[in-house]
């Protein structure tokens, strides 16, 4: 059985195209705050894609508390190794801390431009602010992501936590970070998004 599997995987790697490297540059959502790394959505995405016989490697570039300002430095570090696709998942902490929306926009655009220069395909994972931040701010924030995606012409997933946020069963007791089940939901969404855009 084990042997058979080994043969199969060798077969796959020979027959299909070379391994694709996907970097998820994000914050605590990607890092899997409060969970094992194996439970965080980047690892689940990788697992799901491999199950679908895709030869991929997902690099988890999530750092708890990271804001968009840190993105460019961290991207440079990761690009020391080959990366084919960048999933950009930053900005949530900017919003939660009430930082200025134009600054966040500037940072995101800078990251995308740099990745493009390095021939990396960029996709943007958007986030919405919780309603308690006020309609004005949440509105500005939502629009900011749309504008970035439009201006930079990158594939865009409007709300990564869609169906997870606000659902106590899919979140840790802090009511902010998804739990293991929440990450499964997110991963499913990200896999669909990836498949649609690659």
């Amino acid at each position: 059985m084990k042997k058979l599997f080994l043969c199969l995987s060798i077969l796959i790697s020979f027959n299909l195209y070379a391994e694709m490297s996907i970097l998820i540059l994000g914050d605590s959502l990607a890092e899997g705050y409060g969970l094992d790394e194996s439970m965080a959505f980047p690892r689940v995405v990788e697992k799901k894609l491999i199950e679908k016989k895709k030869n991929v490697k997902v690099i988890n570039g999530g750092v708890s508390g990271a804001t968009s300002a840190s993105g460019i430095q961290r991207l440079k570090w990761h690009l020391k190794k080959p990366v084919d696709v960048l999933l950009l998942e930053l900005g949530a902490n900017d919003g939660l801390r009430g930082l200025s929306v134009p600054d966040t926009k500037k940072n995101l655009k800078e990251i995308i431009k740099f990745a493009k220069e390095k021939k990396v395909k960029v996709m943007l994972l958007g986030i919405l602010m919780p309603p308690n931040y006020g309609a004005d701010y949440t509105g500005q924030f939502e629009k900011m992501y749309k504008d970035v995606a439009k201006e930079e012409k990158v594939p865009f997933l409007p709300f990564l936590l869609d169906g997870v946020a606000g659902n106590a069963k899919l979140n840790l007791p802090d009511g902010i970070h998804p739990n293991q089940k929440g990450h499964e939901v997110i991963a499913e969404k990200v896999v669909n998004f990836l498949e649609k855009n690659i």
């Binding site: 919405l128 919780p130 309603p131 308690n132 006020g134 309609a135 946020a165 606000g166 009511g175 902010i176």
Partner: peptide, 10 residues
Amino acid sequence: TKLMQFGSTG
């Protein structure tokens, strides 16, 4: 204030 809606944190 309508701040407390589905998805609000607090």
